[in-house]
Design a protein around this nucleic acid. Structure first.
Lengths: 216, 216
DNA sequence: CGCTTGATGATACGCTCGTATCACTATAAG
DNA sequence: CTTATAGTGATACGAGCGTATCATCAAGCG
């Protein structure tokens, strides 16, 4: 037998190459040949480790989910002691495309999300309960904050969690579409979060002179 | 000379065929040949009336914008006398994919929106100030409602308008992605709008037994 | 050592895409 | 009645795609 190479490492190398293409040139230009070139391997190798393109896409999606959860939990931890409030803030602000990493993640994620519009079979094969889990997690923490008196009583946790996630997704799209920059998106999100949590220093994020629109 | 056919009518027929494909099979399957078949004409005719595919896409996008504005203003009128409140409600609820028409429009719109991620040149060639105009319009009406005492004073009209539009876009995506149905999305939007406008009957939309999640 | 077998390279196949070419038709203008 | 020309059809071209085929290489086992 030959080299007995580490398959998982190779698959990762190729999968991350796909993610790199998806977050720069877009997922639709992530062809087998492009991925091979980006990963620095031959086309045959991509075929060897992923028998079909769908398998490659699914593997890359798993890697992306991994990176996303890592960023989210890092963002939560960065906010200090873990409370319901920091979980909600950390989770949502982590996925708004502000710095270079979040732009990369959002670009790649959006690519996969829109791919589902045309290939609904892929969603099933992936499980794809990711947004649903996030939503119920947020709802749980909003309810907890509500019982702690940090959130108004007339707030519906489930509806609000869904709204916050949809808002964050919409903000991400608007940044990727060039409608505004990440700082402006973050300001809009923080305004809503501040209103929800009735922060004493609510609106603090709006005092900086950054414009709401992107500077093209 | 031959028949002297009405060019504008033919272009419309072909452009709407593309929209029909975009809202059913997705914009990426709207190839020149598919559009020709859907419109009931030959491939050559599509090439004849639109020299290139980009011209076809731009024309179809214009038709889509036409239909969208028509639906929005119809939705506003349907809410009775035109006030700032009805403009905001009518505009936002009109673009949430609930009935068959709004699903069609949202699907097609999303297709074009995601196309811009890969072909940013198309956005420039189209002007594309559509979302920006909507946003400032909403901000204006929120500010007006604020002066009329219908909206709390600590609300930032610009930030809130942006948030509502992003929320609506995100809700549309979640419906298209199968995460929830149109009724649930509308309930989430109405919850936020009711909170913003401090409706006396706020939460009325939540009393029906419809589930927040879609029934798959 | 020699053979088996996992890993890799080169290349081809069949398809679809946007676009181009060439011929033909039928009508309005002169 | 011609005749130029707007409109239309059939078909081809070159490129890129995912996938398949075949040969080769090298390492471990008997």
């Amino acid at each position: 037998m030959p080299k007995r190479v580490d398959h998982e490492q190779r698959r990762r190398q190729i999968g991350e190459a796909l993610l790199r293409i998806a977050s720069t040139r877009g997922l639709q230009s992530a062809t087998m040949r492009e991925v091979a070139a980006e990963a620095g391997v031959s086309l045959r190798l991509v075929q060897y480790y992923f028998h079909t393109k769908e398998q490659l896409l699914l593997a890359a999606l798993a890697y992306l989910a991994e990176q996303l959860t890592a960023r989210v939990s890092a963002s939560i931890r960065a906010l200090g002691p873990v409370t319901s409030r920091t979980v909600v803030y950390g989770t949502l602000t982590a996925v708004v495309p502000t710095d270079e990493e979040s732009v990369r993640l959002t670009r790649a994620y959006t690519g996969f999300y829109t791919l589902v519009f045309s290939e609904p079979e892929m969603a099933e094969r992936h499980g794809a309960a990711y947004p649903d889990k996030l939503e119920s997690l947020l709802a749980k923490h909003i309810a907890a904050a509500q019982e702690a008196g940090e959130v108004a009583e007339d707030v519906d946790p489930a509806l609000t969690a869904a709204a916050l996630l949809a808002l964050t997704n919409g903000l991400g799209s608007s940044v990727l579409g060039g409608q505004r920059n990440g700082a402006a998106a973050l300001r809009i999100l923080n305004d809503q979060l501040g209103r929800l949590f009735r922060d004493q220093d609510q609106g603090r994020e709006n005092q900086d002179p950054l414009p709401v629109r992107a500077t093209p």
